[in-house]
Amino acid sequence: MSSQISSPEITHAPEHAPGTSRIWRTFWVLSLLTIIELGLGYFLYFQHGHLSYAFTLSTKLLIAALTLAKAYYIVSIFMHLGDEIRNMIMTIIVPLMLFIWFIAAFLLDGNSWKNLRNTDAGSRPNKTEQHH
């Protein structure tokens, strides 16, 4: 084994691969995901005005999903979290689940504000065009 233990109470050291192939493979995965994101970004740019609101939103959600995939590779491989023991992984991942509520609640709140303003709190129909 090539790695060293930093202090006596640590008995576990993840096996570090002798080569760097896993690092470079992750680099290519991250690059590929970024290129796909850019491709979708350019698709939205060149098709701007020709796509339905729902289709544009779905494409943006797909780009966000690719970003989450990139985050997974960075955290798991580059930051070696995937090599730690399961309880350690859980103390990091479980609190971050709060973001699911955080993002949903606040973006819906922003959207609700827009609708309330556009309709004078529901007292008139919404005639504002959707700009995105």
Binding site: F102, I103, L107, G110, N111, W113, K114, H131
Partner: peptide
């Protein structure tokens, strides 16, 4: 995350 979500909230709350 809080910064980015705050940004997203404002962005969702305006028409343009």
């Amino acid at each position: 995350g809080a910064f980015l979500i705050s940004y997203g909230t404002i962005r969702f709350s305006v028409n343009h």
